[in-house]
């Protein structure tokens, strides 16, 4: 399974998200530290879940990091996160 799919799979199971987007951003970091041939090192994740309601930004990201402990210890060098509740996501679109 590709790393991006594995990340999406874990996030789906942990957060039952209303929306989740996992973008392999490795090409944009070509040649940077942690980059390797074949990509799958730098990711951007946008996730909308009611699990985040009432949680601080730090707490939300910690939850995501915890769900992805294995990936962060392994192939994933960088993970950009956007964590929103469904209400915040609706507000952002309005």
């Amino acid at each position: 399974m590709r790393v991006a799919d594995r990340i999406a799979d874990k996030l789906n199971r942990r957060f039952a998200p209303a929306e989740v987007r996992v973008i392999d951003d490795s090409q944009r970091h070509h040649g940077h530290a942690g980059w390797r041939e074949g990509g799958e090192t730098h990711f951007k994740v946008e996730i909308v879940s009611s699990v985040f309601a009432g949680q601080s930004r730090v707490a939300r990201q910690r939850l995501v990091y915890q769900a992805l402990t294995e990936e962060l210890a392994g192939p994933v060098h960088a993970l950009e996160l956007k964590t929103l509740t469904p209400e915040e996501a609706a507000g952002a679109k309005a």
Partner: peptide, 16 residues
């Protein structure tokens, strides 16, 4: 308890 760098602290408090 934060697996990535950078990390910002203000007045001893972890900001993110």
């Amino acid at each position: 308890s934060w697996p990535t760098i950078p990390q910002l602290y203000v007045k001893g408090e972890f900001i993110g």
